[in-house]
């Protein structure tokens, strides 16, 4: 049966008629056509589907859309300024080349932004631990870790 789910995505109120079994990531990608949020493993391991819900990084493939009713969701598309200026965390990923193929990057950035809000100057070890829920099959993580450290410090400095 179709049900209505209403939430805020990237600051805009949206609603969609969906089947009750629809995942949040499906609403984001297929109903709202925001395809920056990726589906990698579909088993809650890889974190490519990470979005921010009410300020916390969550895996949008691991929850029903109905669980996000009334929530304030931000996807990777909502992170940069409207004029295209990159968020400091995005800029740090670019600067430190924290990617290769880029598939995992949206989830990495969404998790990193949430993490950096609470950890303005993380150590390498802390960053690696914070990335437990995000897999990258290309880079070996080295530049991702560098990027998140630099991004966190840039966020703390208000850049």
């Amino acid at each position: 049966m179709a049900v209505k789910v209403s939430l805020k995505v990237n600051g805009k109120s949206v609603s969609a008629e969906v089947e009750e079994r629809t995942l949040l990531v499906t609403v984001i990608r297929e109903n709202l056509r925001l395809t920056g949020t990726h589906v990698g493993c579909d088993t809650a391991q890889c974190g490519a589907c990470t979005v921010s819900m009410n300020g916390k990084a969550v895996k949008s493939c691991s929850m029903l859309a109905m669980q996000a009713e009334g929530a304030d969701v931000m996807t990777i598309e909502g992170v940069a300024k409207p004029d295209g200026t990159l968020h400091p965390m995005q800029a740090a990923f670019k600067e430190h080349h924290g990617l290769q193929c880029g598939f995992c990057t949206p989830g990495m950035v969404m998790n990193a932004i949430d993490y950096a809000k609470h950890h303005p100057d993380p150590t390498e070890e802390q960053i690696r631990e914070a990335l437990e829920g995000n897999l990258c099959r290309c880079t070996g993580y080295h530049n991702i870790v560098k990027a998140i450290g630099a991004g966190a410090r840039a966020m703390a400095a208000g850049k």
Partner: peptide, 9 residues
């Protein structure tokens, strides 16, 4: 437990 995204839910 799990990872930080899982711990948020």
């Amino acid at each position: 437990i799990g990872d930080r995204q899982v711990r948020a839910m």
